[in-house]
Amino acid sequence: MDREKLSFIKLKPSYSVEKFSCGDADLDDFILHRAVAFQKHLLSVSYACVDAMSPGKVLAYCSLANDKVSITDFKDKTEFNRFRKKRGFPNEKRMKSYPAVKLCRLGVASDAKGQKLGSTLLNIIKSMFVIENKTGCRFLTVDAYLDAVPFYEKNGFRFMNADDNDPHTRLMYYDLMDIVA
């Protein structure tokens, strides 16, 4: 699909996604039935990548919410301090947590897979928080499904904690300073 024919839109509560299937029942259910309620209650905001020629067809979507990278995300204070040092935080900016945005959900329609729409969405999100940053945001975070880990690694995400052994997801982050630097 020609990227110039794509639109990235913020889904409004009045926008109803009639049809979407990415092959994951939870991701499909969220965009079809729960995204509006999450947005109405200020829990997350969803965005869609649509074909500009047929704006009712959602090709991919993502849902974002506020988050933080915190000392509690690491096995101990020493590991957190190593993380801060590696990320280049000056001593006067040492805090117990740093502002982040959580990528709650990301789905690409089954009939649009293989067109790099997931990576395109991630690049749009990254630029939103570097170019249009309204509050201060250093990191993007995601609880990546295990089968999606290679996709996130390919897009510059790193593991938050080497000891994370959740059987379904891995906590990962992207440092937005990687774009700025």
Results as ranks from 00 to 15, higher is better:
E4R: 15
K5D: 11
F8N: 00
F8Y: 15
I9Y: 01
P13R: 01
P13Y: 00
S14H: 06
S14C: 04
V17A: 12
V17W: 03
K19L: 14
K19Q: 12
S21Y: 09
D24Y: 12
A25V: 12
D26G: 03
D26T: 10
D29H: 14
H33C: 12
A35V: 04
A37R: 15
A37V: 09
F38S: 12
F38D: 09
Q39C: 04
L42G: 05
V45P: 05
Y47C: 00
A48V: 11
V50R: 01
D51P: 01
A52C: 10
A52F: 01
M53S: 15
P55W: 07
A60T: 11
S63M: 05
S63Q: 03
N66H: 13
N66Q: 07
D67E: 06
K68L: 03
V69L: 12
S70D: 09
I71S: 10
I71G: 05
D73Y: 01
D73K: 05
K75N: 09
K75S: 11
K75P: 14
K75W: 07
K77G: 03
K77R: 14
K77H: 11
F80I: 02
F80D: 03
N81K: 15
N81M: 14
R84M: 14
K85P: 01
R87S: 07
R87V: 14
G88V: 08
K93M: 12
K93Y: 10
M95W: 02
M95H: 15
S97G: 03
S97K: 09
Y98P: 00
Y98H: 00
Y98Q: 00
A100I: 04
L103H: 00
L103F: 00
C104S: 15
R105D: 01
G107R: 00
V108S: 08
V108P: 04
A109K: 03
A109W: 05
K113Y: 06
K116W: 04
S119D: 09
S119G: 15
L122P: 10
I125P: 00
M128R: 10
V130R: 13
N133E: 10
N133M: 04
K134D: 08
K134L: 12
C137Q: 04
R138W: 04
R138K: 10
F139A: 08
V142F: 11
V142S: 11
V142D: 14
V142G: 07
D143E: 15
L146Y: 08
D147W: 06
D147N: 12
V149F: 12
P150M: 08
F151H: 09
Y152G: 11
E153W: 07
K154Q: 10
R158N: 02
F159H: 10
F159K: 13
M160F: 00
N161G: 02
N161Y: 01
A162H: 02
D163G: 11
D164V: 08
D164F: 03
N165S: 13
N165M: 08
P167N: 11
T169L: 10
T169V: 14
R170Q: 08
L171W: 04
M172Q: 08
Y174L: 09
D175C: 07
D175P: 05
L176A: 06
M177D: 11
I179Y: 12
I179R: 09
